[in-house]
Amino acid sequence: MTRITLTVNGRKHVVEAEPRRLLADVLREDCGLTGVHIGCAHGACGCCTVHVDGSPRLSCLTFAVQMDGRAIRTVEDLGGTEATHPLQQAFRRNHALQCGYCTPGFLMALLPFVEAQVSAGQMPDDDEIREAMSGNICRCTGYQGIVEAVRETIGDALAAKTEAAQ
């Protein structure tokens, strides 16, 4: 067993973990963050995407021991149980989910993309959005609603920026 310290969603967790334990399992079982979903456990589906020091990473391809001292962010930190984050709200409005199993992964993979587009002040075309989410698989809704949710989130943020500037 190895003792590791993770800062998860701003809270410090000290965990005793076997080296072979995946970050995804430690987040779910030791930290109680069951929004981290494990679909395939070999890097094909993207469901387990979390942020490590702000950058998306597949928590099923990461051993928790490798993350000692790092800051992890999971979907729980976006908009809480009410899912109040603008991207989550846009998912709801645009029917971007049905069963919702893949949704945390899509949100965590897409959020840095959305933020980068907003800070660059640009609206990506659909191909760019689809490329940004190409590592995530949805098996029920399909992708069009998700593309629309991303476009709407970026559009709203850009409009708010313009308004604030005026």
Binding site: L22, H42, A44, L58, C60, L61, Q66
Partner: peptide, 24 residues
């Protein structure tokens, strides 16, 4: 050796690779 783990960890999760030691 393990760095990004994007190829090795899937192989380990599927037990196609079974190293006794990982050098990060």
């Amino acid at each position: 050796p393990i760095s990004g783990g994007q190829s090795l960890v899937p192989m380990m999760n599927l037990r196609l690779a079974r190293p006794d030691h990982l050098v990060d």
